[in-house]
Computed example of a mutant assay.
Amino acid sequence: MLKTRVTELFGIEHPVIQGGMQRVSTAELVAAVANAGGLGFLSALTQPTPEALAQEIKRTQQLTDKPFGVNLTILPSMTPPPYEEYARVIVESGVKVVETAGRSPEPFMPMFNEAGVKVVHKCTSVRHAKKAEQVGCAAVTIDGFEAAGHPGEDDIPSLVLVPRAVEELSVPVIACGGFSDGRSLVAALSLGAEAISMGTRFVATQESPAHANLKQRLVEASELDTQLIFRKFRNTARVFKNTVSVEVANIERREGTEFGDVAELVSGKRGAVVLESGDLEHGIWWAGISAGLIHDVPTVDQLVSGIVNDAKAIINQRLAALVKA
């Protein structure tokens, strides 16, 4: 067993976490992660209403009796979702772990603290991680530049960003961005992190709701198959490289381009079609550089147990032999 402050904090068996992913982190995947001994996060905003989230939490509770959490991503918007209502549903459902991302969870901390909910905030910089600790987060997830989604604007990879966060923080650090296997877990632990969080790797599992075409494309991918977009708008995003994402990047390079010039290409509706239909050129879809290390589509249990067993073998055999030498 690999015992860390993260496994103790959340009452889980393995220091392996499945981060919240829009339209992917549903009950079947999250429950499978929990049953495998890891910690999975439902995506709150995948559900169209707070009431729908309550039902998804209930479905997950019917599939597992082990700990799991809910991701609540807080983003600026002209017409924001009812974040407080989603937060209240989480509290009232009995879920005891929340993963927040985007804006600071500070406005919701009194509600979560009163209910005994532990908050993990996703950060892309040390300065934001320190702020998360200050407002009372129980742990932070550090997203290196390798990560899918929005890896920030500092372009610092996990190899440097994770130990920098460990140096500055007293709460546990969870490493995210480029992590996918037993080697990754050992590397993260050696950097001072106390768990790894994976998104792209969990997409390519049997319990993931993503279309089989997408999973197979991840198996075929190399480390060169992601594309950075939204750089011009200071909202950098890492997605899979396809005709749409390359077109978006090319449009951005033109003088005077505004977000409205690419908005239709990057719409969430188009991305949903990709996941559901398997038409991989219909829109953008998230993927991290770790896609280059995905070579199969296992069950979640096979993936988690394989990661942990490989990590133990590396620590007990390869690294131990080096010390003896």
Rank of each mutant, 00 (worst) to 15 (best):
I314R: 14
G20F: 01
G38L: 11
Q227I: 03
A52K: 12
S104H: 02
A27P: 11
P151S: 04
C137Y: 01
A175M: 00
A52G: 07
G11R: 09
P157S: 03
L53H: 05
Q302Y: 05
I57L: 01
V173I: 00
S25P: 03
S190H: 13
G149Q: 02
E51W: 11
S184T: 10
T200V: 06
A27L: 09
I57S: 04
F10M: 11
L169K: 02
A193V: 03
A237Y: 14
R23L: 12
G192Y: 13
Q18G: 00
E258V: 15
H128Q: 05
I289L: 09
N235W: 05
K122V: 01
D279L: 08
V173Y: 03
S267I: 08
T46K: 01
N235D: 06
G69E: 10
F145H: 08
G152Q: 07
P48Q: 01
K3I: 15
P163I: 04
G268E: 02
E146H: 07
Q47I: 02
D279T: 10
A325I: 15
I289H: 10
T299S: 11
L42R: 08
G271A: 15
K232S: 05
A291W: 07
A36H: 08
V262Q: 04
T226R: 02
E168V: 13
E13T: 13
M1F: 14
L72E: 01
C123R: 02
L45V: 05
F10K: 05
G40W: 13
R318Q: 08
L322M: 14
F145D: 09
N242T: 07
E99P: 04
F112L: 02
L161E: 05
V30M: 08
E85F: 08
E194R: 06
E168T: 15
C176T: 15
P81I: 00
K241E: 05
M1H: 12
G256H: 13
D65E: 14
E106L: 00
R127Q: 08
P76I: 07
G192E: 12
G256R: 10
F230G: 00
